[in-house]
Amino acid sequence: MERKSKFLRRLICGLAVGLVTLGLVDSALAATYTQKSNALSSYSASKFKYVSNSNYYLTGNFTTKKQYSYASGYKKSTFQTRPDSVNYKKGNKKVSFKSSYFLPVTKWKGLSWGNPQSFAMTSANTAYVLCTSGSYAWITRYNLKELRALGATKSGKMDMIRRATFYNANAKKYPTQNQNTTYKRALKAVKVGPKFKNFGHGQSLAYNPKDSSHLWFVGTGLVAGNHVSTKANVQRVKISTLKPDKKINFRFKSKSGYIAGGLNLAFDKSGNAYLDSKLVLAV
Rank of each mutant, 00 (worst) to 15 (best):
residue 261 G to N: 01
residue 256 S to A: 15
residue 239 I to S: 00
residue 249 N to F: 14
residue 246 K to L: 07
residue 262 G to H: 11
residue 218 V to Q: 11
residue 257 G to W: 07
residue 231 K to N: 09
residue 220 T to Y: 03
residue 226 N to S: 15
residue 219 G to F: 02
residue 264 N to Y: 14
residue 220 T to D: 15
residue 249 N to M: 03
residue 218 V to R: 12
residue 261 G to R: 02
residue 228 V to P: 02
residue 238 K to F: 06
residue 256 S to D: 14
residue 228 V to H: 12
residue 254 S to G: 14
residue 238 K to A: 13
residue 252 F to D: 00
residue 260 A to G: 12
residue 234 V to G: 03
residue 246 K to V: 02
residue 251 R to H: 12
residue 259 I to Y: 08
residue 257 G to F: 03
residue 219 G to D: 07
residue 253 K to G: 00
residue 259 I to A: 12
residue 259 I to F: 10
residue 223 V to W: 08
residue 222 L to Q: 11
residue 255 K to N: 15
residue 245 D to M: 04
residue 264 N to F: 03
residue 225 G to E: 05
residue 245 D to F: 00
residue 227 H to C: 10
residue 247 K to T: 11
residue 251 R to G: 04
residue 236 R to V: 10
residue 237 V to E: 05
residue 249 N to P: 02
residue 220 T to H: 11
residue 238 K to T: 15
residue 242 L to N: 12
residue 224 A to M: 08
residue 258 Y to E: 13
residue 234 V to D: 00
residue 254 S to D: 13
residue 238 K to I: 01
residue 236 R to W: 03
residue 250 F to C: 09
residue 232 A to L: 09
residue 261 G to C: 02
residue 223 V to I: 06
residue 255 K to D: 13
residue 222 L to W: 06
residue 243 K to C: 08
residue 257 G to Q: 05
residue 218 V to K: 10
residue 252 F to Y: 05
residue 225 G to Y: 06
